[in-house]
């Protein structure tokens, strides 16, 4: 365990409403999180906001930052575990897809690790073509695809504390891709599939907290926000790896430039879901900020910097116009 030297970050919940009149600006300089000889990326807030999890280079391993003490510890050293791991709604567990190599062939396994005890629960055999795990709202059920079919598994975890609604996934639904196409399933009826954008392959789909919108990237196109009820899509322009604000009114994402070989520039952007208000949060020429993730209380965004492997936490300032 290693002590980090940066000021304790105090989260102050700021009610966010009326986004049409709101602008979002960085509040002060971002806090820097790093550890000597370690390269970190892809931060993800715990639902309770008291921890930040992130991975190492090439998604190897998971580390946890305790925001109250500034301590960092390694939770997992599994290859592949860091790619889109999923916090349980109660913030006690993290589910991930680990990568194993047997006779040169990669096999995936869905596993859950308890953050406190680091005890691992293995939920699947090592198989090919396993999708990423997603938690159900009940904190017990885990969903993943295998050979493009959706499966659910009971983790056997008993819920020990009352789950707060604002930390829960959308009501009874999960979003995933099947044959690279966007789909939503009812978690109590995994065979009831709702399909969207039938002619478009997508990546990085995320369901809004209220379940009404989906943000995703077209395979080789723009970042879009899809209204499920109306089918209307809003094109946010070039953007990658979207993440929702907790109130579901904003999307943060990264905008990158490259020459086909290396990244030349990258910044974190915030956009209203109608695409009418867009802000560059980072605005640096020399840093390559990537992989944003909004804190559960809406007051900060965590992201990483590609060249240094440093995680940043940027506090946000909401202003009414």
């Amino acid at each position: 365990m290693r002590k980090l030297f940066f000021p304790v970050f105090l989260f102050i919940f700021i009610p966010v409403s009326g986004y049409a009149q709101t602008t979002i600006q960085p509040a002060g300089k971002p806090q820097r999180i790093s550890m000597k000889d370690h390269f970190f990326m892809r931060p993800s807030w715990a639902p309770s906001g008291d921890k930040l999890a992130f991975t190492g280079a090439n998604q190897k391993g998971i580390w946890i930052l305790e925001l109250s003490s500034n301590d960092i510890f390694q939770l997992s050293d599994k290859s592949g575990a860091g790619y889109k791991f999923s916090w349980s709604p109660d913030g006690e567990y993290i589910a991930y897809r680990a990568r194993y190599v047997e006779k040169k062939r990669a096999r995936m396994a869905i596993e859950v690790v308890q953050v406190e005890s680091r005890k691992i629960i293995k939920l699947s055999a090592k198989r090919k073509r396993l999708g990423l795990p997603l938690w159900g709202r009940d904190n017990k059920t885990l969903f993943f695809t295998r050979n493009e079919k959706l499966f659910s598994v009971d983790t056997g975890i008993s819920v020990t504390k009352t789950l707060q609604k604002r930390f829960l996934p959308p009501e009874n639904e999960i979003v995933f891709t099947r044959y690279q196409k966007l789909q939503i399933a009812q978690i109590d009826r995994p065979d009831s599939l709702e399909k969207f954008l039938k002619n478009t392959k997508v990546i990085n789909p995320v369901l809004s907290p209220d379940g009404n919108y989906i943000a995703c990237e077209e395979y080789v196109g723009d970042l879009i926000v899809l209204n499920r009820a109306t089918g209307k899509r809003v094109d946010l322009g070039t953007g990658h790896r979207p993440a929702w604000s907790p109130d579901g009114k904003w999307v943060c994402y990264m905008v990158t430039e490259d020459d086909g070989h290396r990244y030349l520039a990258s910044d974190i952007y915030i956009s209203s879901i109608d695409g009418k208000r867009q802000f560059n949060l980072t605005q640096t020429d020399e840093l390559l900020e990537m992989n944003p993730n909004w804190s559960p209380d809406g007051t900060a965004i965590a992201y990483d910097e590609l060249q240094s492997g440093v995680i940043y936490i940027q506090k946000l300032q909401y202003e009414q116009n």
Binding site: L130, Y219, T238
Partner: peptide, 14 residues
């Protein structure tokens, strides 16, 4: 397409 999108296509599909 962006470099991150190319990687995400591979990563997402495992």
């Amino acid at each position: 397409p962006g470099l991150s999108a190319r990687e995400d296509i591979a990563n997402q599909n495992g």
